[in-house]
Design a protein around this nucleic acid. Structure first.
Lengths: 110, 110
DNA sequence: CATTCATATGTTTAACTATTCATATGTTAT
DNA sequence: ATAACATATGAATAGTTAAACATATGAATG
């Protein structure tokens, strides 16, 4: 094995907490599904009820509801009730920023 | 079913291309694994050879190599050869920005 | 209070994926 | 050329997960 001990020492000190890195991975995992990306994109425009999302994506209400739960657990979307209907919206601006950066990366590399 | 036709019409026009959204999902999928996040974080500091990364993460060379391939396919890392050794580094600044945004999101929500 | 509507949730299954193990490739030195 | 080293790759396996299906919750209405 060649000598890389110096580099290892330099880097080792600055490794963030393992739990933090796992949380980061878990957050991006939520973005890492095209259905969820689509839902987030829909909500860029305006808040929508569950069945509107299901209509727009041509998916069952159940599938959409499951994914909305995942998004809500990650605090990427919020919801409010109005009678029988529940409207979902983006939770904050990080969502747009993160997706925007991903978009840039893709479009800048062919 | 209640009436959400207006909202559906408004949003429907602005849905990006399906392929783009899938590509976006695929990109974030690459970030969505704690091992790959850790590798990227290590490379924040400086370029590293494969076995240094394996050392730092306490993983086999093979596992690291597989993940580096995934990262390279997504154009998140680049590499250069120096003799028998291959050094990996971050491909561009999007990586830092995207991870930084994810970090903010996590830390701002407890 | 029973029914209907909108949404949520538990369970199952098929597809995907991270790691391991074994092996191959490519480089340097003897 | 052959051996040793650094890395890559193919195949197998175990764990994860998205969607489908069936069912449950919770709100409005008659």
């Amino acid at each position: 094995m060649h000598n890389h001990e110096e580099a290892v020492k330099r880097v080792k000190a600055d490794i963030p907490d393992d739990e933090l890195l796992c949380d980061l991975g878990d957050l991006f995992k939520v973005f890492g599904d095209s259905t969820r990306i689509k839902i987030l994109y829909l909500l860029f425009e305006e808040e929508l009820c569950v069945c509107a999302i299901a209509d727009l994506l041509n998916m069952t209400q159940s599938a959409v509801s499951h994914q909305l739960k995942t998004l809500k657990d990650a605090k990427l979307v919020a919801n409010r009730r109005e009678g029988k209907t529940i409207y979902y919206s983006l939770a904050d601006d990080h969502v747009k920023t993160i997706i925007g950066m991903g978009f840039e990366h893709i479009t800048e590399n062919d």
